[in-house]
Nucleic acid binder design. Structure first.
Lengths: 154, 154
DNA sequence: GCTGAAAGATCACATTT
DNA sequence: AAATGTGATCTTTCAGC
């Protein structure tokens, strides 16, 4: 499969390079080479190949949460009205289209979906409830749980 | 508060720079300058200041999910044995120290904590249960919910 | 992996507001 | 004073060997 191709091609140098770049996307080729035990040019060439292969899909700056106006996180357990395929598809389309929804997981067990929503200065829970949750199609039951504090984030 | 200091100090140049760097952490000073309408050196200077102020907290390479061997996501609702401060602190220290735990939220309502754990080729649910969940201190009740499919991610 | 030319980063200093 | 632009210098990138 296309999956394990990408995966199995990687040797320990590649894995190390990825590890370093995950922690510092702006590491120079010299840094990378030193970290993994290659010359700068070899390290650089490998990184370019990893980008081309789609192993490295991008580089992002991490911005302090408060700068982005983060006010809190809400997890919402969603139960749909029925188990028809169309109901699920409609709900997922709505979830994908909604900018306020950070994550959406199709779940086993009690609820059908778990949503993660980040509240911001410009997006209170009341807004979420009025503009997001109450207009999602096919919803039978909602149960919101509030994060009081994020102890750890990935 | 320290919060709105960081926030309100930012002018539209800073905001634009952040927007660009969030999408491409490796943008050059020339790129940044062009994007926001400053000289490369001015753009560069501003970025350094944003880093110093703690507005930009880091730069991360984004790695394809399958390369990381992602197999699924589990959400675990945790109830502690009691509400003593020490119990919470112990639990949080353990959560922070545990690499398998991607997110940990202190919650209102039923459960005390919500954990997000990503299963990998090298980390099955059985492993998680044996090596992570069953050894967390101060835990009274656990309820795991499995994500069948990630519909949407951040 | 090395070399060298081109591109970029970074700093002191002049300039603008 | 505070912030920008300019240009000189050092570092990094990247193609050819």
């Amino acid at each position: 499969m296309a999956n394990s191709d990408k995966f199995s091609d990687l040797d320990s140098f590649d894995r190390e390079l990825i590890k370093v770049l995950r922690n510092d996307a702006r590491a120079t080729s010299a840094d990378l080479g030193e970290a993994v035990g290659l010359s700068p040019s070899a390290a650089h060439r490998r990184v370019k190949i990893l980008e081309q292969k789609g192993v490295i899909t991008g580089y992002r700056a991490v911005i302090a949460e408060n700068v982005q106006g983060k006010q809190g996180t809400v997890f919402v357990h969603v139960t749909l009205t029925d188990q028809r395929r169309e109901t699920f598809e409609k709900f997922e389309r709505a979830a994908l289209a909604c900018a306020a929804i950070e994550e959406c997981h199709l779940m086993s067990g009690e609820a059908d979906y778990l949503l993660k929503i980040v509240l911001r200065e410009s997006l209170s829970y009341e807004d979420v409830h009025r503009d997001v949750l109450s207009i999602m199609p096919g919803v039978s039951k909602l149960a919101s749980s509030f994060s009081i504090r994020t102890v750890k984030m990935g």
